[in-house]
Design a protein around this nucleic acid. Sequence first.
DNA 1: GCAGCATCATATGCGTACGAACGATATCGG
DNA 2: CCGATATCGTTCGTACGCATATGATGCTGC
Lengths: 161, 161
Amino acid sequence: MAIQRNEQRMNVKPEIKVEPTAMPDGYVLEDQVGHLIRRAHQRHTALFIAMIGDEQVTTTQYAALVKLYQMGELSQNHLGRLTAMDPATIQGVIRRLTLRKLISHRPDKNDKRRRCLSLTAAGRDLVGRLLNNGPKVSKATLDPLTAAEQQQFVALLKRLT
Amino acid sequence: MAIQRNEQRMNVKPEIKVEPTAMPDGYVLEDQVGHLIRRAHQRHTALFIAMIGDEQVTTTQYAALVKLYQMGELSQNHLGRLTAMDPATIQGVIRRLTLRKLISHRPDKNDKRRRCLSLTAAGRDLVGRLLNNGPKVSKATLDPLTAAEQQQFVALLKRLT
DNA sequence: GCAGCATCATATGCGTACGAACGATATCGG
DNA sequence: CCGATATCGTTCGTACGCATATGATGCTGC
C-alpha cells in the first residue's frame, strides 16, 4: 500500500468545475468520525506492512499469532473472539497460516467440534522475531501526536469499542 | 453485522487452561492502537448498516454518493481521491452503484480517458433521503464519550490521517 | 513533433469482513 | 432420557482494500 497515496500525485489534470446539485453542505464527509476512522485504519495498515518485518504477515494474522504465542492452545472460535474476528473470518486467517506451516491443529479430546490450534516451531520463531516490531508500528501510528495526546487518544479510543 | 458479537455469547463451553509458551507479556494486543482502530471501524460499520436507512448502501458507497451529490460531475479517480479510495477500489464501488442505476456516466469531452460520473434521479432521491442519517451514525459512534471528549477525539483523529 | 513519463480506467489476485445457511456435536430443561 | 437450543467449524456470496500489470490517452520538454 502506498502511504498517503493521494498526496503523491504530481501531475493531475485540473478538474473541471461543475456546479453542485444544490445544498449548502452541513454534511462534510471529511469531518465524519467514521470516515476518519477508516482513513486512520488505512494508514495504520500501511505502516504495519512496511514495518512489521515480514512480507507476508498481515495485521490480523499477527494478532492471531501473538495470541497463540501468549496463550498456548486455543480453539479456533475462541481465538477469533480474542482477536475480534467472527468465525468466518478467523477460519480464513487460520487456513492461510496453516498453509504456511506457522500453525498446527489437533482434535480436542473433550469436544469433537473443536480444533485445538497452536504455533509450530516455525510459528514461534517468527513471532519471536516480529514481536519487537509491534510496538514500533503503534509508535509510528501515533507519531503525529504528542505523548500526552497519544495517551488521551488511546484512552478515548478504548471507550469506543 | 452483529454489534458486539463477542459479548453476546451466553453458552460458551469453558476454555481449557493451557500454560503459555513463556513470556511475560509486555505486548498486550488489546492496548495496541491498530487493534483498537480496527475494532472501532467494525463498530462504526455495524452502526452505519443498522442506521443509514437503506439495506444496500455501504459506508464507502455512501461517501461516493454524497460527494457526487455535493460536487456534481466528477471523474472516477477524482471521486476516489475525495473519498480515500484507490482506483481499483473506487472502480468496484462505482460499478455496483451503476448496476443499481444510482450513478450514470458519460465520456469526458476534453479527456477521452475519463468517465464523467454523476447521480441519476434515483441516486439524488436516495441521497436526499439518507443525508439526515449520516450525522446520526456519527453521533451514535461517538455516543460513549461526553461532548467535550467527542470534540477532542475527532480533533486528534484528524491529525492521524 | 515526438519521446518519455504521468494519468485514466480496467483487470487479476490475495486478504479481510460479515451475513446466512449448514451439519455435527454439546448442553440444558423437563 | 430426549427434545430444544447453542456452539463449533465450514461454505457461499458480497463488499472493501491494495499491489500489480495493462492499454489508452494526455502532457512536457527537448
